[in-house]
Every structure is written in structure tokens, then in C-alpha cells.
Simulated scan of single mutants.
Amino acid sequence: MSDAAAAAAAIPDSIDAPERGLWRDVWHQFRHHKGAMAGVFIFAAILFIVIFGPMIYTVDPTHIDVKARNAWPSLAHPMGTDNIGRDIFAAIMQGGRISLAVGITAMLLSLFVGTTVGVLAGYFRRLDGPLMRITDLFLALPILPLLLVVIMLFRDTLRATFGPETGIFFLIVFIIGITSWMQTARIVRGDVLALKEREFVLAARSVGAPAHRIILRHVLPNILSPIMVSATLGVANAIITESALSFLGLGFPSDFPTWGRLLFDGATFMTLTPSRVIWPGLAISLTVLSVNYIGDGLRDALDPRIRGR
């Protein structure tokens, strides 16, 4: 068989070969991002430790052993103990559950508000001006003083209504989520403004599709990239904000530890047992760093201008 005939025979096979789909391309790009894969591994390890660790390491984080107070790391207490003998490793695992729960829940609230505002402002011209002025107003507010004032005003009321732990959880999640949606709204609005002039959206309008159907079927699926990146960054921002509030003594009660609360409690004894601030600080740093790397990997993988390089 000649070379020309062999080439002709090979053409149908290349045509019949299945093409690699969008999400397979995204995964291919993501798994070749070394920082993102390292972030996934570290974040998965942290999740495993805080979720399943208490089932393996069964020490009660509230158990007081005065004889072992301010102990350095040992086999009995891998991360040492605090000033009244409570195990720091057990407290780190329990605090991680709370900190991650706050971060993920506040991120979902922020993402919902930001995406809704961004889509409405970008798609409906008459809503663009009022919604963007509200966004600018929230951006101009001093966030940390606002958080402090809201907590001081509503903390006791929510504690009395839902209990000391649940009430503070609702309050912190709400104030973090309601004050961190603005960047997502502005990013989503910019993408929607570009998308609504694309041919497939104009075609849907021309056949009489209602606005809500166009948004749900055509607009939202095409703005998943900035939404997913904002989600990863929102988790990191919420964890840092909650840690800052707890460090200032305005978060959860002292007997309900979070990573920020552990930092606050250990700051007084930092010269005596520096490990009390090293371990929660390291947990916060690794979590935020891993989530940020995952966000970088998602951004690169979902960007068609970068994917395939």
C-alpha cells in the first residue's frame, strides 16, 4: 500500500476518535498545576484530620488536668496542653470543625448574594445603577469596625434566642457573608454584560425565551469560572475574618474553641509555651494558603486563554 493510501485509510480513525470534553480539559489543566494539587492534598488532609481525627484521637478537648498544665509536646499530648491542662491537639481538631464550618457557610451566603446582585445588575439595565451604588456603599464601609458594632449590638439577643454557640455561629456567618459579596458581584456583572450580547443569548431572546430562563440556562453556566474562583477565595477570607474576631475576643465563647480563639487564649502564655500560638496559627495559614492555591489552579484551568498552553 502506498503512503497516500495509508494516509487516506488513517483519516476515518482520526475523525471517529472522541474529542476531549471541556471538563476533561479543565481537569487536565488543573492537575498539571503543581500549586493547586498541593493545595488539594493539604486541604483534604486538614479536612480529614478535623472530621475523622476525634474518632481516632479520643481525648476530650474540655478535660482539665491541672497536673499537666502548660506541658510541652509529648507522646501523651502531641501539641502540648494549655494553662489548665486541656489537650491542644484535641482543641485544634474541634476548633477546625467550627472554623471550616463558618468559612464554608459564610462563603455560600456571600456567593449567593454576590452572584444574584451581579447577574441582576448585568442583565437588567434599569437595575444596574441602583445595585452598583449599593455595592459601592458596602465597599466604602469600614468592615472591621462594622463587624465589631454588629456583634456588640446583637450578640446577647441571639445568644438568648438560639443558645451561646448557635447564636454566635449564625451572627458571625451572617455578618461575614453580608460584608464580603461585593467583589463577586462586580466580577459577575462584568461577565454578564459581555455575555448578554453574545449570539446564543440574542437567539434565545429572539425566540421569546423569558429572562429567568435565559439567565438560568445560558448565562449562569457561562460564568461558573469566576464564581468558583470567588468561592475558594471566599472560604479563605471568611476563615481569616472569623479568626480575627475570635482573636479580639468577640467570637465564640472561651469554652467553644476556634482557631482564632485558641490564638487569643494562647497569646498571654506565648513566652511560657509558644506552641499554644504556633499550632493554631499554622492551621490557619495552611488552610488559607491551600485554598488560595486551589483558587489559582481553578482560575488557570477555567480560563480558555490559558488552558492548553
Rank of each mutant, 00 (worst) to 15 (best):
M1K: 09
P18N: 06
E19M: 14
G21V: 03
W23S: 08
W23P: 06
R24D: 15
H32M: 11
H32E: 14
H33T: 07
F41I: 15
F41Q: 05
I42A: 11
F43K: 05
A45N: 08
L47K: 03
F48M: 15
V50I: 14
V50S: 04
I51N: 08
I51C: 11
F52S: 08
F52M: 11
P54C: 01
M55G: 12
Y57E: 09
T58D: 07
V59L: 12
D60T: 02
T62F: 10
H63L: 15
I64P: 06
K67M: 15
K67A: 15
R69H: 13
S74V: 09
A76E: 15
H77Y: 15
T81D: 06
N83K: 11
G85Y: 07
F89D: 10
A90F: 09
A91D: 10
I92R: 13
R97G: 14
R97W: 03
I98N: 10
A101N: 14
I104C: 04
I104A: 09
L108H: 02
L109Y: 02
L109M: 12
T115R: 05
T116K: 01
A121Q: 01
G122V: 04
G122M: 09
G129P: 00
L141G: 00
L141S: 00
L146F: 10
F154V: 11
R155K: 11
D156K: 11
T157D: 11
T161A: 14
G163Q: 12
T166Y: 05
F170R: 03
I175P: 00
T179W: 01
W181D: 01
A185V: 04
G190N: 11
L193H: 06
L193Q: 10
E199T: 05
A203L: 12
A203W: 05
S206H: 06
V207K: 06
A211M: 09
A211R: 12
H212F: 14
R217S: 13
H218D: 10
V219T: 06
N222Y: 09
I223N: 01
L224K: 08
M228Y: 00
S230L: 00
I239C: 00
L250A: 07
G251Y: 10
D255Y: 13
F256T: 12
A267K: 13
P274M: 04
P274I: 03
S275Q: 14
W279K: 03
L282F: 14
A283D: 07
A283C: 08
I284T: 00
S290P: 09
Y293I: 06
G297S: 01
D300H: 02
L302P: 00
L302E: 02
